[in-house]
């Protein structure tokens, strides 16, 4: 097995030669970038405080998917790759602010509904917990995207479990939510291309009862990696 110093050495040797440019080139880029342009910023929408809570479907007994979700929520890392996505019209939030947790609890809004066993408060707390220790800034849409990615995984799991136990009503409810997910704005606005096609593929397959296609979807694999989808 390669030693740690040997790995460092190979990484260093693989580094490409530095790209450099004359001052005039950099000045031209800066001059263009620093032009004042008409603002494209939309009026800030009123913040909707979404208190979704736990959505209970199909009686008091939590389905197996709920246990998976609880297991997932107990994990330290959500696995969502939020970062500081540059999305128009989304406020930048300082993660180092002392009131950041209160801010997110009070203002995180989303189009997503949650499947049985998944609670809004728990999900928000996990999103708060995974913020970088060193602070920095992140756009608020990233929090919504993280929330909606996980909610979608939950509904996929709920649909698969309902299909396995032959619960047509629960499967239909889950399929309806998977269809609704294709319009959740946190997901749609952060789609750099091709992502929502995957979500629509899952929704169409679920609506037609095609478990094989749902299981073969990239989304299913992502959810497995995150630990939210049944294996």
């Amino acid at each position: 097995m390669l030693s740690e110093p040997e790995l460092d050495d190979r990484l260093a040797r693989a580094k490409r030669a530095d790209l450099s440019a004359p001052e005039a080139f950099l000045d031209a880029i800066l001059a263009e970038a620093a032009q004042e342009r008409p603002s494209t910023r939309a009026p800030r929408k009123a913040v909707v405080i979404a208190i979704i809570g736990t959505l209970v479907v199909g009686g008091a007994t939590l389905p197996a998917a709920a246990e998976e979700i609880q297991t997932f929520l107990a994990q330290a890392d959500l696995g969502a790759q939020g970062g500081t996505e540059v999305i128009p019209y989304s406020e930048w939030v300082n993660l180092g602010a002392p009131d950041f947790p209160e801010y997110l609890r009070a203002t995180l809004w989303t189009d997503a509904t949650l499947p049985p066993g998944m609670s809004h408060d728990e999900l928000v707390e996990k999103i708060i917990d995974r913020k970088p220790e060193g602070g920095g800034y992140m756009q608020e849409v990233v929090f919504r995207m993280q929330y909606e990615v996980i909610a979608h995984c939950g509904w996929m799991s709920e649909w698969r479990q309902a299909m396995l136990r032959g619960d047509g009503n629960a499967a239909r409810i889950a399929a309806t939510q998977l269809q609704a997910a294709t319009t959740w704005r946190g997901l749609v606005s952060t789609d750099g291309g091709g992502i929502m096609e995957q979500y629509r593929g899952v929704a169409d397959a679920a609506a037609s009862g095609d478990a094989r296609t749902v299981a073969a979807s990239p989304r299913h694999r992502e959810c497995q990696i995150m630990g939210v989808e049944s294996r």
Binding site: R10, L11, A12, R13, A14, K15, R16, A17, D18, L19, S20, A21, P22, A24, F25, A28, I29
Partner: peptide, 21 residues
Amino acid sequence: LVAEYDLTRDGVADGDTDSDL
């Protein structure tokens, strides 16, 4: 801008082509 200005790579060559890495 790239056509107008010369962007160069500093150093003799790029890093090793380490296909395994």
